[in-house]
Design a binder for these strands. Structure first.
Length: 579
DNA sequence: GCCGTTTTCGGCCCGACTGTTTTCAGTCG
């Protein structure tokens, strides 16, 4: 059992309690516990063994005992009892937009509907409209919800969502009456995937803006249209919400709609303790109803005695405590990046030539790039032999002779084989400027073996960076079953850097792991793994996730100017204990 | 079910939109 499995059970309990009509506070307690555990940067099994579960905020005696039972036996009696009372599949019904816990219970009680297939059938037979409190419109709404659920099962990756939002922002910007305008919600926080896009717009005359928004040629359906909010679904199935606010309330609205939900609840609690009230309209003095702040986010946080908090941090993972004592991190920015240390070329499985990669990197203002084609053993990816690397180095040397303001580093992406060995012997590895090693196969090994294999690579005296450390591919492949705490500790000790792979479907390490690894003292490299020159721009998504992981420029080796990077690499290799 | 620089009991974040209602419940974020 890992954190994600435990979090899923707690979330499902919350959903079932909702349908059962339980106290909203109990439901929220389970929701909060699930959310905390999902993003907890520590393994709950080890916390449980030490009896420290209740030290996690939001986990008290009750949930700790249930978790202990679940972690040690694989079952939870309370959950089983709940499922005996309410079919588990009813929880799935509430994922249908327009159908909440109350109506799910209603269709179950009245029509015996227990799952999505039943629901689809009841909709097509027009059975829902006859239920109390329901009508033809509700039924049609649920029908659309069902359709939407099927179409949008997969959430959007950042490289899909960010450009889509930018298209609509460009479309509305500059129109008469359109003031400040930007994405809010999970997209502004740059979660690794987003379910829908929230846009916020300051407008004196919202009706005009709403009209233009809803008449974009890509709009398939307008699902809500009010004074303050419009929702549209595009032909692609993507949902976009537009919130319209009076310009003087823009900051309060932006704070509110950016979330996260957990962050906002905490911020409001802080407001309440100060005799204030925070809503999307501003910060108000409860005693006299006067509005103290609303125009900008900085004013809103300021009225609560807090500094402005970067959206990337707003997850209730310690940012409010840090803000209170002036200890917020100085987050890394895209401009801090001096080069990319993981890119491929046509020599292995890339699509651009070395020269094309170098030219594009220079156009991004980089000072260096590490050309890190696959090595020998990864045959499927056209891995290079020693002789082929030597040939590539001659090309690299020629480029470096030609370029005065830029450096091409000799590099490689080694394959960590099933025993933790890599492609080349030490006497060849020392000839590279920088080496990355990654796992590309043997995912099915058991946890102990995988961990040992990875730790062995981390301690290797000639490996500088571990590539995509968990191996997950969003929507396609689960992370390797590996004890990352052990990997992080080994990396901190040996000085080996961990990659944050910026490829949008990898984003590996993720934000929670970055936080954990940073805490134990690891260094990182944010790299794109570009297989085409244009993919070098994926660096922005890597930086988005780095910021969510609280990384600062000094934690990331490719923010170093070339001399410092070289000194770091030299120090790394000479200071390590013999292998 | 959680939590405590007023509390170990009694609180727990806030408002808009929709549809089915004649004053509000359910849903959503």
């Amino acid at each position: 059992m890992d954190n994600l499995e435990a979090a899923d059970v707690l979330r499902e309990i919350a959903e079932l309690l909702e349908i059962a009509g339980e106290s909203t506070f109990r439901i929220r307690a389970y929701e909060r516990a699930a959310q905390v555990i999902r993003s907890l940067p520590r393994d709950i099994n080890s916390l449980d063994r030490k009896g420290e579960l209740t030290e996690i905020p939001g986990i008290g005696k009750g949930i700790a005992a249930k978790l202990h039972e679940f972690l040690t036996t694989g079952e939870m009696e309370y959950f089983e009892e709940l499922k005996a009372k309410i079919p588990e599949s009813l929880a799935e019904l509430t994922h249908v937009s327009g159908l909440g816990p109350k109506k799910a219970k209603l269709v179950y009680d009245e029509l015996g509907i227990v799952g999505l297939d039943d629901l689809r059938e009841a909709v097509s037979e027009k059975k829902l409209r006859s239920l109390p409190g329901m009508g033809a419109k509700t039924e049609a709404n649920i029908a659309r919800g069902l359709e939407l659920l099927e179409r949008s099962r997969g959430r959007l990756l950042l490289n899909e969502a960010v450009p889509a939002a930018e298209i609509f922002i460009d479309y509305l910007k500059g129109e008469p009456g359109v003031g400040a305008l930007e994405a809010a919600g999970s997209l502004r926080r740059r979660q690794e995937t987003v379910g829908d896009i929230d846009l916020l717009c300051a407008a004196d005359d919202p009706a005009d803006v709403a009209e233009r928004f809803c008449s974009h040629p890509e709009v398939e359906r307008v699902t809500a249209r009010g004074e303050k909010k419009c929702s549209i679904v595009l032909h692609s199935g993507l949902q976009i919400d537009l919130r319209l606010v009076w310009p003087g309330e823009y900051g309060a609205a932006l704070q509110y709609f950016t979330g996260s939900k957990a962050h906002n609840i905490r911020v409001r609690e802080i407001a309440v303790k100060r005799g204030l009230k925070l809503s999307e309209y501003g910060v108000f003095d409860v005693s006299n109803g006067r509005r103290l702040a609303a125009a900008t986010e900085a004013e809103v946080y300021g009225a609560l005695g807090l500094p402005w908090i970067d959206p990337a941090l707003r997850e209730d993972r310690g940012e409010l405590e840090a803000a209170r004592i002036g200890a917020l991190p100085g987050l890394i920015r895209l401009e801090d990046i001096k080069g990319d240390l993981h890119v491929h070329t046509v020599a292995s499985d890339g699509q651009s030539t070395l020269r094309e990669m170098v030219d594009f990197a220079r156009s991004l203002g980089y000072a260096y790039i590490a050309v890190s084609d696959h090595a020998l053993k990864l045959r499927v990816a056209g891995g290079l032999s020693e002789a082929e690397f030597e040939e590539q180095w001659r090309e690299v040397d020629a480029l470096n002779d030609e370029l005065t303001d830029f450096r091409v580093l000799k590099a490689v992406e080694l394959n960590i084989d099933n025993d933790g060995e890599v492609d080349f012997p030490a006497d060849f590895l020392v000839r590279y400027d920088v080496t990355t090693a990654s796992i590309h196969g043997g995912f099915g090994q058991d946890r102990a073996r995988l961990t040992e294999r990875m730790v062995r690579a981390v301690r290797h005296p000639h490996i500088d960076i571990i590539g995509h450390p968990t191996g997950r591919v969003l929507g396609r492949r689960e992370p390797y079953d590996i004890d990352l705490t052990a990997v992080f500790e080994a990396a901190a000790e040996s000085g080996t850097a961990l990659e944050l792979n910026a490829f949008p479907d990898r984003l590996d390490l993720n934000d929670g792991y970055l936080m954990e690894a940073k805490k134990v003292g690891c260094r990182f490299a944010v790299n794109t793994d570009a297989h085409h020159s244009g993919q070098l721009t994926y660096m922005r998504y890597g930086i988005d996730i780095a910021r969510r992981g609280w990384l600062e420029p000094d934690n990331v080796i490719n923010t170093f100017p070339l001399p410092r990077l070289k000194a770091w690499l030299t120090g790394l290799r000479t200071s390590r204990p013999p292998f």
